[in-house]
């Protein structure tokens, strides 16, 4: 494209930009404005209160808990999902028998509709009827099993496991794609030099998938942070707020309790926390970037 093609630039961009502006930025702006008013369903004439609602919510203990939960949830899911995704990609890159079928099968959880996955897992975790406890009891690991989702100690972890099951296949495929682009000649050369599998992994494979890993990390972080269905179906944020994260809290305040102003404030906070989290990633990546840009 040259300077003369400016019209083409705007022609190509216009539809996407207009849609995102009108259906995402404009409503978000509305939500930000709403957050400075005290509004709820039962109070149809909103009053401008500035940062009053922010201050109130910020001072509640619950707010801190939701920030911590959201970070735990996001980082737990993202980390486990990418580690599991990476290792299963390595495994599926070994040219074992049945590999073609496996590569297709492994993606199934990701294809499964989110609500369906959540309902299945809720049932798997059921203390009496669920498959997991029945399995543990029959193995003799436990006498009565665990109340996975009803115990404040295990609820978040259980929700994370279910979300990882649903999400890791995506990381697998992305890593698999990256692995297939690892320079074979370099690997062969390393083998001739007598480098073992671990050495090759650290010296050749990891550096060459660095950037993909970063993209994967950022993308899965955003998707997980705003992932609503799983927790809503599993626990509705309970027990005792142990699994309440930003999206479930926003939904609960807005639609469950008719408190739109509070929901708007949580919405704004939610974006701030997410932006900080992503910024942190980039800061870490920048500071640890190797001098030699390309492997």
């Amino acid at each position: 494209m040259t300077k003369n093609d400016r019209w083409l630039v705007w022609l190509f961009l216009a539809p996407a930009v207009v849609l995102v502006a009108v259906l995402m930025y404009y409503p978000m702006l509305g939500t930000v404005i709403e957050s400075f008013y005290s509004t709820s369903f039962i109070n149809p004439d909103p009053k401008f209160v500035g940062l009053e609602v922010y201050r109130r919510i910020f001072s509640q203990q619950e707010f801190g808990q939701i920030v911590v939960n959201s970070l735990l949830w996001t980082m737990g899911v993202v980390l486990l999902q990418n580690v599991l995704g990476f290792f299963s990609a390595l495994l599926l890159n070994q040219h074992l028998p049945g590999q073609g079928l496996m590569r297709a099968l492994v993606l199934l959880p990701w294809v499964l509709p989110g609500v369906v996955a959540a309902i299945i897992w809720r049932f798997m975790y059921d203390p009496q009827l669920g498959l997991i406890n029945s399995f543990l009891i029959s193995l003799g690991v436990s006498d009565t099993g665990m109340a996975w989702l009803a115990d404040t100690d295990t609820a978040m972890l259980s929700a994370i496991v279910a979300a990882v099951w649903k999400g890791f296949p995506f990381s697998t495929v992305v890593f698999l794609a990256a692995l297939q682009n690892v320079d074979e000649e370099q690997v062969e050369a390393a083998i001739i030099d007598g480098a073992g599998p671990l050495r090759r992994l650290v010296d050749i494979v990891l550096p060459s998938i660095r950037e993909v890993a970063m993209i994967n990390l950022v993308l899965t972080t955003i998707l997980t942070f705003n992932y609503f269905d799983m927790i809503w179906v599993l626990t509705r944020g309970g027990p005792q707020n142990a699994t309440h994260i930003f999206p479930t809290k926003i939904y609960d305040l807005g639609f469950g309790q008719f408190r739109f102003g509070d929901a708007a404030v949580y919405g704004v906070f939610s974006i701030l926390v997410l932006v900080l989290l992503i910024a942190l990633y980039f800061a870490i990546q920048r500071s640890s970037r190797p001098r030699v840009a390309r492997a």
């Binding site: 995402m24 978000m28 926003i250 939610s270 992503i278």
Partner: peptide, 24 residues
Amino acid sequence: IIMLLVILAQMFPASAIIIPIYRM
């Protein structure tokens, strides 16, 4: 800059913008 803004929009939580979109 526009690209960055478009991609940033991915971070908006759906439940926070749904009522304004509904009104539209």
